[in-house]
């Protein structure tokens, strides 16, 4: 029994250690890979453009529901004009970066892990190595970079969707007749660049962590169908947990 616990623990630690070494070799490959923008553009398409629809639609609905819930609470205190602040601050500080990252892990992270896992299983990565092409530079680093670039952009789009275009604004102003002027002036009076900076830092960190987990899981997946499917699942699970834990840590740090 004790032996079992020890094995699990040592497996966990060695996995963690391997992942760190893997990250180091990814980071070493980042610079050479930046000289190959065509590869990154392709991955931005796979990771960013293809995640756009899910991000836009989720952003809209989350903004809408937040607006609806917030209104009914605020109206009891006669503070319905603060609806904009409520929506904007919750979205920018928390929901924007976190929900975008969770959706990203489910949409793009799982696809990354499965793709790389299958490339490993079908010897494509080995074939590259044998053709003297470093798969770290050709396959892994472009995907990692694209993830780090795409996440803040997707987060910004999510926030705009949720607060403005169709989410909070549509419900608050359109349906619940909160004054559009006070909706926006309240937001502007209470949201400052500091909040945006926090959202940016969070989304960069989440982008790096989710991409790291996804490429690592894919790269080390056993070359079997079960191995690939397990890598996909653990990408989503590990990413989601890391996002939530990191969100707490980052918030605690940045709000002091």
């Amino acid at each position: 029994m004790r032996g079992g616990v020890l094995t699990v623990l040592s497996n966990f630690l060695s996995g963690l250690g391997q992942a760190q070494f893997f990250l180091l070799s990814v980071l070493r490959a980042v610079l050479p890979s930046l000289l190959r923008p065509a590869l990154i553009v392709r991955q931005l398409y796979m990771i960013g453009v293809l995640s756009l629809i899910i991000i836009v639609i989720s952003g809209m609905f989350i903004g809408m529901v937040l607006s609806l819930q917030g209104y009914h609470t605020l109206v009891q205190f006669g503070a319905a004009s603060s609806l904009g602040v409520l929506v904007a601050l919750s979205i920018i500080r928390e929901l924007g970066p976190v929900v975008t990252a969770l959706l990203f892990a489910g949409r793009a992270g799982s696809a990354l892990a499965a793709e790389i896992g299958l490339m490993r299983a079908t010897d494509q990565l080995s074939a590259m190595e044998m053709m003297a092409v470093n798969p770290m530079r050709y396959v892994i680093a472009p995907r990692f970079i694209a993830g780090v670039i795409a996440m803040p952009l997707l987060t910004a789009i999510f926030c705009v969707m949720a607060i403005g275009v169709a989410g909070g604004h549509a419900i608050g102003v359109g349906l619940l007749h909160v004054d559009a002027g006070s909706y926006w002036t309240q937001i502007r009076a209470n949201v400052d660049l500091h909040d945006l900076l926090q959202a940016l830092i969070k989304s960069l960190v989440f982008g790096a962590v989710v991409s790291w987990i996804a490429v690592y899981q894919g790269y080390t997946a056993p070359p079997t169908s079960e191995g690939v499917s397990r890598a996909t699942t653990s990408t989503v699970v590990v990413s989601s947990l890391s996002i939530l834990a990191l969100d707490f840590i980052l918030t605690a740090f940045m709000f002091r």
């Binding site: 910004a156 937001i187 909040d195």
Partner: peptide, 12 residues
């Protein structure tokens, strides 16, 4: 979207 957030939402 980043610009909208900086200029419309935050009071730059």
């Amino acid at each position: 979207a980043v610009f909208v957030l900086t200029f419309r939402v935050a009071s730059l």
